[in-house]
Design a protein around this nucleic acid. Structure first.
Lengths: 136, 136
DNA sequence: CCTTGACCTTCCCATTGTTGGAAGGTCCAT
DNA sequence: ATGGACCTTCCAACAATGGGAAGGTCAAGG
């Protein structure tokens, strides 16, 4: 398979496949006589792995580690689990931060008339003029 | 105030102040004889506004708009509110996506022994070998 | 056999927000 | 006058992705 077909088969764009290769996430592909990258089923399988890991929000760096563990028949599942748990924590941290933002924003928006008049607690809060729209 | 003091007073780093100026979020600062940027209280106030908006997750582009609205005495609060609500939606979308990831990961991690053995439902899922670890 | 269109190659650029550093000028206190 | 703390601009890097240019390759059809 050429890179285009590999892209379709794996759900990873050709651009990204080349990128992953360049940064060492996946090994360099075989090349045809003329220099085209060739992909066999095993390579596609790896690409799907990468795709799925990205969908779960793992960083490229983490994916490199996960792939190494995947290939390592002597891995300990503890190592994999630790990576997953750390990632969960990272995600939860981001979620919490965003939820705080949403809570504040929703609160401010609720108190904003949203009409043609200029008075707006949202701007007042941003400006620090708000005298607190009921305790943030 | 020089940029360093302005940075301390506003909570925005000197680097970022220059950046915001360069991309037009804030107007170009006054300059001293020797070319140093000078900041007065109004400028600090604006910087604090930017800081607070960034803390709430607004993009630089949104902040530029918010500042324009802030300065516009004829704004309608509806415009501000619309911006805030759109931002809330964006955040909620990201939160939902991350929560999905966390749910999947947590489920997989729960089923992973996390010991010295290599068997690991997490890797199996990523590899697509898992035969589904109880319906994702 | 040659053209055409779809594919491939590499290389560079842009994005978003932030930080780091280098090379050089300024300010103030000693 | 010298040093240290500040300032200036410019350039690079991060993460992950997409866009595009310039050029080579392959297969089908005339």
């Amino acid at each position: 398979m050429n890179i285009g077909e590999a892209a379709k088969a794996s759900g990873v764009s050709a651009k990204m496949i080349r990128y992953y290769e360049s940064v060492g996430v996946i090994p360099a592909a075989q090349r045809s006589e003329s220099g085209y990258r060739r992909y066999d089923d095993a390579a596609i399988h790896t690409l799907r792995f990468v795709r799925r890991a990205r969908d779960l929000g793992f960083s490229v760096e983490d994916i490199t580690r996960l792939l190494a563990l995947w290939r390592d028949r002597n891995r300990s599942s503890a190592d994999v689990k630790a990576l997953a748990l750390a990632h969960i924590k990272t995600l939860q941290g981001k979620i919490a931060a965003m939820e705080d933002m949403v809570a504040t924003l929703r609160h401010l928006a609720e108190h904003c008339h949203g009409d043609a008049r200029p008075d707006c607690p949202i701007l007042e809060d941003l400006a620090g003029t708000g005298e607190d729209v009921a305790a943030r």
